[in-house]
Design a protein around this nucleic acid. Sequence first.
DNA 1: ATAATAAAGAGACCGTAGTCTGTAACTAAT
DNA 2: ATTAGTTACAGACTACGGTCTCTTTATTAT
Lengths: 200, 200
Amino acid sequence: MDARLKRGQKTKRKITETAIALFHERGFNNVTVDEIVTKTNTSKGAFYNHFASKHEVFAEQFKQIDQFYVDHLVPQLDAKKPVMDRLAQFLDLQMTYIQNEIGWDVTRTIYEQELSTERSSYFLNPDRPLYGILLDLCQEGIDNGEFKPGYTAHDIVTVLIHAMRGVLYNWSLNRGKISLKDEQRVLFGVVLEGLFRSEL
Amino acid sequence: MDARLKRGQKTKRKITETAIALFHERGFNNVTVDEIVTKTNTSKGAFYNHFASKHEVFAEQFKQIDQFYVDHLVPQLDAKKPVMDRLAQFLDLQMTYIQNEIGWDVTRTIYEQELSTERSSYFLNPDRPLYGILLDLCQEGIDNGEFKPGYTAHDIVTVLIHAMRGVLYNWSLNRGKISLKDEQRVLFGVVLEGLFRSEL
DNA sequence: ATAATAAAGAGACCGTAGTCTGTAACTAAT
DNA sequence: ATTAGTTACAGACTACGGTCTCTTTATTAT
């Protein structure tokens, strides 16, 4: 059980790379599966053996996004600073990354797919690393009394996630014509103000 | 220019009613255009003469939603109460209406369509009545100093819209399995807290 | 009345995502 | 070594949203 599997992985990688490149070049909706399989000298059979749908090619990118948060964003946060600052900084870094590295078309496609598919979505997966990151931060904030009382860590994460979704949805909808960073700053300015004790 | 137009309107109405009923019954994705035109004894030609897409049958519902806000929700707001309270009440009424009368599948479909179509979307239309309602309320709140300083009415509306989108997107994504009212209350509790002066 | 134009609709047709069946190459079991 | 089973894949086929062309029926102009 090796030679076959190896060949499969190679095909999958070839398809993934070509597809992502094409999507990036001309947009998700302007690239057909037929085109992808032709260009990679494969077939529909090969494509749908490795992916459940055209959308799912993005699952790769998705894991990549969260991995980037864990590997490159979280380490940048200064553990000596208050949770409030770290949270603000994380959100800022996150949105900068999405705006510059992921782009609105990929984001739009992901948001669309999550709504359209019946299958288990990535957004709903409770083991998504992003949730862990936020939960840890929020728990720490609660423990040292930075937040207003009455919220559980889970409440706060829910609030943050909703806010993120709203900003990212809107940004995708506007096809990148508005500044993600600016929108993020305004909304999370308000949200964080509403969450934290304001004593200084 | 009367008899033809009348016939056209009749056909359109017939298609709209049948389609909406079917969508409500079995979900948007499980109803085909062919089925709709068969059931209404019309044709693809008739359908696409009246609608630009299958999704667009919802445009009707959409206008209905905002009309409902204007006709039935806004009048319920007590002009003597502070803007803060009116805003909270409006959001509460709005989400109750959506949850009970519109439902998650229609909401999901609308949110999906807005992302997928190239055409001018309803969300991006600046003349949407909802924006007017919120803008008026926010301007009044600013004028009588209820809000924290530094925000324009437009800023605040943007924040509220983003928050709405986040909650509604998530609710659709969860296929109605979470309570829209509860989610709304938590998020807007925080947002309103962040927006208003807290002196009482 | 007649010709010219336009709206509403019928239904064949097209493009594309996704399915299904078949096959060749490899692996495992006896 | 032979058989049985499995994986990766090829490519015909299906389902469905959307387009295109053509016909019918009403409207307007002369």
